[in-house]
């Protein structure tokens, strides 16, 4: 299982990083989501893997035998925060596109920066 999970984490992370390096904001938003999955799983894996031993106490549970609850608690908050992050990023990217007219991460298409100084190329009042 360990090898499968670590490969999986690697694939998620690689896809996430690839998307983070792309020029379109939406790609970056998805990349952030994927990287968040990878990192959450990574943190979770730091508690080592246990099958069928959730950290829920029942009479006669062996404390040493159950999964480590600490990384799980960390990841639980991280899950909610990554949702908030995705939401904020999505809204910022939509607003940025409204302001700049471009969904490029730099707010302008790569060819445009030469014309930055010319006021005629920039939309008035924006």
């Amino acid at each position: 299982m360990e090898i499968v999970l670590s490969l999986g984490i690697g694939v998620f992370a690689a896809s996430g990083v690839w998307l983070l390096l792309r020029p379109r904001t939406f790609q970056v938003a998805l990349g952030l989501s994927l990287l968040a999955y990878a990192v959450n799983l990574f943190i979770f894996a730091m508690g080592r893997l246990k099958v069928g031993a959730p950290p829920v106490l029942e009479s006669g549970t062996d404390a040493a035998g159950i999964a480590d609850p600490v990384p799980q608690a960390l990841v639980l908050t991280a899950l909610v925060i990554s949702f908030a992050l995705t939401a904020l990023f999505l809204v910022v990217l939509l607003a940025a596109r409204g302001v700049t007219g471009s969904d490029h991460v730099d707010g302008q298409e790569p060819g445009q920066e030469t014309g930055q100084g010319k006021p005629s190329q920039r939309e008035p009042g924006r």
């Binding site: 999970l5 490969l7 984490i9 690697g10 690689a14 896809s15 990878a38 799983l41 990574f42």
Partner: peptide
């Protein structure tokens, strides 16, 4: 990705 996988 490889680094994170290896580390994990």
């Amino acid at each position: 990705g490889t680094g994170l996988a290896g580390l994990a």
